[in-house]
Amino acid sequence: MTTSTASPAPAAVDRSDFRTVMLSGTKVGLMTVVAVLVYSALFRAIPAGLAREVIETVVVLATATLVSFLPAQWVVARGTEGIAGAAAVGLWGTIVFMAIDIAALRPANHFVTIYPWTWDAVGGLSTWWYLPIWWMLGTFVAWMGGMLTAGRAARAGSNTTLLGLAVPVLAGSALIAVIGRIMGCPVMLPVTAGAGFALTLTLLGVAAIARKA
């Protein structure tokens, strides 16, 4: 009679190899392009008002959730290597978006309004002002998403699914957006919610990695 012992399931490890980073970042870039097109279509189709701002806010928060947490999910961020890999995915995603933006979206803007003149006016009528900001922001939120994912994974029984990680961040961003609207903040609701998302993600990410340490 033979006996066998079940070997323990292998622990999740970081997958920050070059191929994973490049493929994952490309998917992030393509998702960003789709989000820009959806946002632009809604901007043109829905009359100005609270309803349009709310719908655009949903698009912004959904996109922010994906570009912040999917990189960490794909590289299985559990330690320093995985957190850095998540940030690298975010950076490559912004580069892929930039290439498509320059090659397709900006030329198409001459025929169909994707970026209204008010968007360019923010950067002094420069058509490229937002790209360096997006490089930094896209890398930063993926980095924070990696920190939050790794920090949660280090705690036994913690939920590291996309939904489990995103819900507290979305709740914080919604709260900040509502407070801003009640206080009469002149900034559009999608911008306030997006800023609230980044702030909440940063606070939770730093707190999670501090507890892990």
Score class of each variant (00 low, 15 high):
95 I>Q: 04
29 G>P: 06
90 G>L: 03
36 V>Y: 02
72 A>R: 06
56 E>D: 10
147 M>S: 06
139 T>W: 03
189 L>T: 09
33 V>M: 07
54 V>D: 02
153 A>D: 14
197 F>Q: 08
71 P>R: 07
171 A>T: 11
94 T>I: 06
175 L>M: 13
125 L>N: 15
4 S>D: 12
23 L>P: 01
56 E>G: 14
207 A>T: 12
192 T>G: 08
207 A>W: 09
150 A>F: 06
63 T>H: 13
86 A>G: 14
27 K>I: 12
177 A>F: 07
144 M>D: 00
124 G>Y: 05
76 V>W: 00
24 S>R: 03
5 T>D: 12
39 Y>K: 02
95 I>S: 01
71 P>T: 06
178 V>P: 01
197 F>L: 08
207 A>Q: 13
104 A>M: 14
79 G>I: 01
147 M>W: 05
28 V>M: 15
146 G>R: 07
138 G>C: 10
175 L>S: 13
86 A>R: 01
184 G>N: 10
21 V>C: 08
41 A>N: 00
73 Q>K: 14
43 F>D: 11
55 I>V: 15
149 T>S: 14
161 T>W: 05
167 V>A: 13
187 V>N: 05
118 T>L: 09
84 A>W: 03
194 G>W: 01
97 F>P: 00
175 L>P: 00
153 A>F: 11
80 T>Y: 07
120 D>C: 01
78 R>V: 14
108 A>Q: 05
53 E>K: 03
70 L>C: 00
189 L>V: 09
156 A>D: 14
105 L>S: 11
156 A>Y: 04
159 N>M: 09
83 I>D: 04
68 S>M: 04
32 T>E: 02
198 A>Q: 08
112 V>L: 13
123 G>W: 06
158 S>V: 07
209 I>K: 08
7 S>Q: 14
74 W>S: 11
212 K>T: 05
47 P>V: 06
3 T>C: 01
19 R>S: 14
189 L>M: 14
25 G>N: 10
179 I>A: 15
120 D>N: 13
42 L>S: 01
128 W>C: 02
180 G>A: 11
143 W>T: 02
182 I>K: 06
59 V>F: 02
134 W>E: 09
29 G>A: 12
29 G>Y: 10
123 G>V: 08
127 T>W: 10
159 N>H: 10
200 T>S: 13
17 D>P: 03
41 A>Y: 05
161 T>G: 15
204 L>N: 07
14 D>I: 05
12 A>R: 13
179 I>F: 10
66 L>R: 03
88 A>R: 10
65 T>Y: 01
185 C>P: 00
160 T>P: 02
92 W>N: 08
107 P>G: 12
11 A>I: 09
40 S>A: 15
58 V>Q: 04
107 P>T: 11
67 V>D: 04
207 A>H: 10
143 W>P: 00
94 T>G: 07
15 R>Q: 15
147 M>H: 04
90 G>R: 02
158 S>I: 06
205 G>W: 06
97 F>M: 05
